[in-house]
Amino acid sequence: MMRWRAPAWLTVPMALGIAVVAFWVAVALTVDWWAPYEPLDMVGRRLRPPSPQHWLGTDALGRDVLSRTLHGATHSMPIAVSVVLCAVAVGSLVGAVAGYLGGWIDAVLMRAVDVTLSFPPILLAMAVAATLGPGLENAAIALVAVWWPVYARLMRAQVIAVKGQDHVSAAVASGVGRVRLLTVYILPLSWTPTLINATMDFGQVVLLAASLSFIGLGAVPPTPEWGAMISDGAVHFYSWWIALGPGVAILTVVLGFNFLGDGLRDLLDPRSQ
């Protein structure tokens, strides 16, 4: 009888990362159908500790903390996906153009990247979010403003490295146009570091979005967002269960994406093998 063996690339950390990420994605997609209570309903007495009726207790308004934690995935996970995708799109375009064209265009674009990276990410995100006003959409815009320069640098470095390879030189000698040369011969070989970095950044975006909500620059009450829930728990310090659920949720999401990113790096980057 043949026994199933896991593929060599499926390490324990990567399998754990896949399981955690898949769990929270499934929660975000299906929580409306099976959560114990609605996230905004006052279903019990206020500030009740964990019990068989409310596994993570209730908050200051009598809302079920477990239900609000589960519904928080419907806000935090889409923000992470939208911010990372937009940052990758903007940063990769800027980096590819700068690395491929070089010259004064490269100098101007990279100085803009340097200026953006000179600010601490959390302070820049706070400044942009404060200018735009509270709200998850504005928080997402602020996070894109923080993250795109990282991908611009990554893509620029890869494009510069790839465009000096022999197959690109042969394509230039055969008369391939600039656009086709970039999109067909260079970019497909330049995506690996961006993909790995983007996978790890999903968790970091969730963490930074929660930080903005914690200080009042993200989700607007009564939205069940993890950072806003932790902020409520900080107000009621002795009701520790209010912050426990969203805190564990953020921890598991960040760890899950980090494990997944490490696994992808080991799989796609020959230098790490």
Rank of each mutant, 00 (worst) to 15 (best):
V220Y: 04
H167F: 15
A173G: 14
P188E: 08
G175H: 10
A129I: 01
D269Y: 08
L251W: 12
A139Y: 06
L132T: 09
L189V: 00
D232L: 09
R271C: 07
T69Q: 08
A6H: 06
S272I: 10
W191I: 13
L123N: 03
G263D: 01
G17A: 03
M126C: 08
A170M: 11
P188V: 05
T194G: 09
A171H: 07
T11V: 03
T74W: 13
H167C: 11
S239M: 02
E137P: 00
V254G: 01
V205Y: 12
P149E: 05
A140T: 07
D166M: 12
F23M: 14
M2A: 14
V115T: 14
G177D: 12
R178P: 12
M126S: 10
S169L: 15
G72W: 06
A198S: 14
V162Y: 04
L124E: 08
A249K: 11
G133W: 02
V12A: 15
L61M: 14
G177A: 07
M110C: 07
V235T: 13
R45H: 12
L264S: 04
D201V: 10
D166S: 13
Y238A: 14
V168N: 05
G91L: 07
S76H: 06
L143V: 09
V21C: 01
V159F: 01
V162W: 05
A170S: 09
V128K: 08
I230H: 01
V220N: 05
T192H: 00
S272F: 10
N197W: 08
P7R: 06
D114V: 04
P120C: 03
Q204R: 15
L208I: 09
A15G: 10
N197I: 00
T223Y: 06
T30E: 06
P49F: 05
T192D: 00
Y238N: 13
I160F: 04
L70A: 02
G216D: 07
V65H: 03
A198G: 08
E137V: 13
R46H: 01
D269H: 07
D266T: 06
A130T: 10
L208D: 00
P246E: 05
L123K: 07
Y238P: 00
R3L: 11
G133E: 05
L70T: 04
F23S: 04
I105H: 02
D166V: 10
D106G: 06
L255H: 03
V81E: 03
P246H: 05
S174P: 00
S51Q: 04
L56Q: 00
L124S: 10
M126W: 03
W33G: 11
I105R: 13
V94A: 14
W191C: 07
V83H: 04
V184K: 14
L101C: 10
T131A: 15
I141V: 15
M1T: 12
L212R: 06
M14S: 05
Q273G: 13
V25M: 10
A198R: 09
G95L: 01
L244Q: 03
L207W: 12
G133C: 07
D59W: 05
L56S: 00
V150N: 13
W24I: 03
